[in-house]
Computed example of a mutant assay.
Amino acid sequence: MENAKKKFAERLRKAMEAAGYEPKPAVLEREFNTRFWGDPMTLHGVRRWLRGETLPSQEKLLVLAEWLEVPPQELSFGEDALKRVEQRRARWDSGIGYQDRELFEAFLKLPVPQRKLVREVILTFAKVHVTEPAQKRLKKPE
């Protein structure tokens, strides 16, 4: 968790610089508090964000992201995590056709108990499919 806090602080400082602000606690306190409608942050509180000692709440993270014009996921988790999610989504989108999409839509419309049953059947087939090639390799030709 400490590493996540340090990485967040680094991303916050870089986002502030990219937006044209000095990454100083006084600047962060002033700019954040002019945009946040809840209890104001103290100088000590924002300093702890910049030093990587604490993380802001989700509500405060959204305000920071909007102010700095950075996606909240990128500010929170980093650009690499965002890219991995986008790559996985692109792989998912390109990997299935319209028939599979119809199947997934139908699956999602099922009641929860039936979805659970269908899920178990699919996972069982997947396990068997994975072990069959391994079993064929283990069998010696007669």
Rank of each mutant, 00 (worst) to 15 (best):
L82E: 07
V85K: 11
G52L: 08
E2V: 07
K109P: 00
R89K: 13
E22K: 14
E10T: 09
K83S: 05
E105P: 00
G38E: 08
A15S: 15
E120Q: 15
R101Y: 09
T54G: 00
R47W: 10
V112N: 00
A9R: 04
L62G: 03
W67D: 09
V130S: 08
R101P: 03
L75A: 04
R88A: 12
E66H: 12
W49P: 00
P111C: 00
E22S: 12
L108H: 09
F8M: 04
K136L: 15
R88I: 02
K127P: 01
P40I: 03
E53D: 15
R30Q: 11
V118A: 15
K83M: 07
S94A: 15
P25V: 05
V130Q: 14
T131K: 14
V118G: 01
V63S: 02
E132N: 08
R89C: 01
L108E: 11
P71H: 10
M41R: 14
K60T: 00
D100R: 09
D93A: 14
A9D: 06
A65W: 05
F104H: 03
R101S: 09
R47T: 11
K5L: 07
P111M: 00
L103V: 06
L12N: 04
V46L: 05
K83I: 12
A15V: 07
F36L: 01
A18D: 10
V46R: 02
W49D: 02
A81S: 11
L138T: 02
N33W: 09
R101L: 14
M1S: 10
L28Y: 05
W49Q: 05
R137K: 13
A15Q: 04
V130W: 08
K109H: 00
L138P: 01
F36M: 01
W49V: 02
I122A: 15
G38M: 06
V118N: 01
E105Y: 07
